[in-house]
Design a protein around this nucleic acid. Sequence first.
DNA 1: GCCGTTTTCGGCCCGACTGTTTTCAGTCG
Length: 581
Amino acid sequence: MNNRQVGEIFDAMADMLDIQGAGYHRVRAYRRAAENVAALGQPLQEIWSRGELESIPGIGATLAAKIDELMRTGQLEAYQQLRAQIPEGVVAMLQITGIGPKTAARLWKELGLESIEALERAAEAGRVRDLSGLGPKTEQNILAGIDALKRRTGRTRMGDAWPLARDMLAALRETKGVRQAAPAGSLRRMRETIGDLDLLVASSDPESVMSRFRQLPQVEEVLLSGPTKTSIRTHQGFQVDLRVLEPARWGTALVYFTGSKAHNIRLRGLALDRGLSLSEYALKREDGSEILCGTEAEVYETLGLPFIPPELREDRGEVEAALAGSLPDLVKLRDLRGDLQFHTTRSDGHHTLLEMAESAQAYGLEYALVTDHSHGLGVTGGLTVSDLQEQQAEIAAVNRQLGGGFRLLAGVEVEVRGNGSLDLPDEALAGLDLVVAAVHSGLRQSRDQLTTRMVAAIENPHVDIIAHPTGRLIGEREPGDLELEAVFAAAAATGTALEVNAHPARLDLKDVHVRRAIEMGVGLVISSDAHAAGDFQLLEFGVATAQRGWAAAGDILNTRPLESLLDWADRGPAGHTQRHR
DNA sequence: GCCGTTTTCGGCCCGACTGTTTTCAGTCG
């Protein structure tokens, strides 16, 4: 029973309790527990075996007992009972926009509808309007919502949502009266996937902004539109919400719409402690007078807090840290001096070594490590020992050509074979500046097998960095079944670094694992995994992921100057012996 | 169901929009 499974059970229980009409706060307690379990970054099972479940925020005696039951028996009586009482299809109705727990319960109990399909037939037949309080419009909205649900492909990757947000905001900025325009919501917090896109605009002429927004070429359908809020659906079925407000209220609005919801609730609690009420419009005193905040910093300051970066706003301890003055000094994009994974046309990259080096230099990097695939990864036509030697000569030539201020480093992304050995000989690896090792095949191995294999790679004295440790592809492929605690322990013991792969499809390690790895003393690197000259910009996503994992510059090895990085890697035998003690 | 320099009970964030109502419930974020 892993963290994800427990979280899903608590979330499902929250849905079912909600339909049953359980109290709002009880339902919220289950949802909060689900979120906090998902945010742990370490196995719930280990916390359970140490008897420390109640140390998890939002887990009290009752929920701890439920987790205990799940861990011991793999079952949960209370969950089974709920499932027996409420048809699965009724719970599924909650996914339809516009249908909440109250409506779902009534459709089920009063119309006998037990699935989305049955609901669709009833709505088409005009039977839904028979319920008091539901009319023809609601019926049409339900049908539109079912249609949207069928087309919905789940959450969108951060890397796909950003271009859409940038395009729409650029268009809105051209509208008269606009002072500020920014993304908000999970996109601004740089979550790996985005549900709906939230945009925020400050303008003296809201109606012009709304009008422009409704007419953007990306818009397929206007879902709702009022003076301050408009929601649309794009042709791809992606929902975008726009809020427009007056510039003087920008700070409170940006805090509010950036969220997370859980973070906002904490801020509101702090406001109440100070006799204030916080909304998206202002902080309000008890006498009704308003404190307007034009910046986010003013909002936090009024609450007695330092500025909390959006990437931390998940109610994962950032409010406590802010109160204690112990917020981390997060790593910034500009702290990165180099990149430690990119590819060229020698394997599966699209540009030559020189083109990639020039792009890396133009991007502002001081060094970059070439890491074409080794030959074991057949699909990419990877490097043999002699290819690697040829490339080293080429690297020297490019370094001479580019001159000072930038240094290309010799490396490889060597394949970790099924048994944990590497598919290049020691002699070939010894001549490189840094060696990156990765698993690309056999990710479906058993937990024991995969973990043993990964630990073997980590303990290999030639290996400096493990690339994309879990192998996941967001929305496409589940991570390998790894015992990450063992991987982190091995990495910390040997001084082998783990990668935070910046590609938006990977983001691997992910945020909560970054945080756990740092706690365990693991050194990290942020790498672009660039396959084309423009891909160094992806580093931004890797930095954001590290920030979400509370990483400071000191936790990230490629923030170091070249000399210091090479000292760490120390290719000499003594250095390795020392580091792999 | 959680939680506590308001501590074992009584709180638990705040507001917009819609559809259906004659003043508001439900949903959403």
